[in-house]
Amino acid sequence: MSESPRAKRIHAVKFALLVSVVCCLLITGASTGLSPLQQANKRLDRQKNILKAAGIITPDGTPSRIQIQALFQEKIETVAVDDAGNFMDPSQGQGLSLYLYREKKILKAYVIPIESRGLWGKIKGYIAFERDGKTVAGFTVYSHSETPGLGGEIEKAWFQKNFIGKKIYNAQNEFVSVSIAKGGIAALPETEQAHSVDGISGATLTGRYLTQGLKENLKQYESVSVKLRQAYQKKTVGNDMTTPPIKETN
């Protein structure tokens, strides 16, 4: 090319601007155009796991999109609670999120999101409680990076099933959470068996971290659980829970 350096420079700048504008348009277009679909996907994924934890769909079931949405719409209510365990208006900032499972307006269970340290990375999942506020109704893990075959067994149905029916309060009504025992629970004293699940052989540490994580997470929700438990004892659950039925907004 026989252009002067100045012309070359101007050409370069023009070209750069042109490319930038075109690319910007392209990306913006794709991003905005596809955004609703992406959001829907994320929501659906979370919904599926909440449904699994609450025991509405089986752990290895593969329900369709429509089914998930329908079930979630019908049975799950997303709420937020403040530190004292009162349901709050979502406009008042971020509280702890909580999912209520109602069957014909009657509270069946509630689902708490779990985020725990694992041996190699974070373990994310949900734990569901019966409406009595102390009995575990279900447990799921949807994201982890534990060793397959050892700690990785936490995502398996056999392990998760063990949680069902365990109590997070002891006989003296003190909060004890659920712990993953080292080895089988058969060796534990009778009093502890109700709060413990069988550990995974060879994955002592995953169990230990998950136990800690559950304890910390549940402690945060302790006030809610206490409230629900008291309400349950008064047989008023579902009736006096006059919280505004907050729908999922996003």
Binding site: L34, Q38, D45
Partner: peptide, 13 residues
Amino acid sequence: IVIDQVLQAFLYD
């Protein structure tokens, strides 16, 4: 980026 957006929209898993 476009490909990534498309995947997130249609093949989320």
